[in-house]
């Protein structure tokens, strides 16, 4: 009886320690179908990209870095790891998925639609982050 209780306590403690040492394995970010299939209504013109760049510098660069590598100045303060926007894993997403993620935010990533309520601004951002593709 006593050893059974001890075993249970050990398993609970092991679980707690395991949780404490858990590395940053981000859970998959589920994008609703509506956004996955959404087409970008703003064409990636130089004006749109320039507008997106200006917004990116103000709103995103501190964490995502100048080139979207995830090496911004605020990264050491973050709990999560910003993605590398140059990689296929990021660029392989649809415009709608990127639009949804930056609009809604998650964990350290703030909701862009709070500061940028105009959809067009956020689509401009999508057009700009596409320029990071290598």
């Amino acid at each position: 009886m006593k050893s059974g209780l001890l075993l249970t306590i050990c398993i609970i403690v092991a679980g707690l320690i395991g949780m404490a040492f858990q590395t940053d394995q981000s859970k998959p970010w589920v994008v609703p179908d509506k956004y996955l299939k959404m087409t970008n209504p703003v064409k990636a013109t130089p004006a749109s990209i320039a507008a997106g760049k200006s917004l990116f510098v103000k709103q995103c660069q501190d964490c995502h870095g100048k080139k979207g590598l995830g090496d911004g100045t605020k990264v050491p303060e973050l709990k999560s790891t910003p993605p590398d926007m140059t990689k296929a894993a990021f660029q392989g997403q649809t415009d709608g998925a990127i639009f949804y993620k930056l609009s809604e935010g998650r964990n350290d990533m703030p909701k862009a639609k709070k500061d940028l309520p105009d959809d067009e601004d956020r689509w401009n951002l999508v057009n700009f982050v596409r320029t990071f593709k290598k």
């Binding site: 050893s3 050990c10 395991g18």
Partner: peptide, 17 residues
């Protein structure tokens, strides 16, 4: 016996982490 069991479990946990 309980002490041995506890010790083994702790060693396993430390090794795992």
């Amino acid at each position: 016996k309980n002490f041995k069991l506890l010790f083994t479990m702790l060693c396993l946990m430390l090794w795992g982490t």
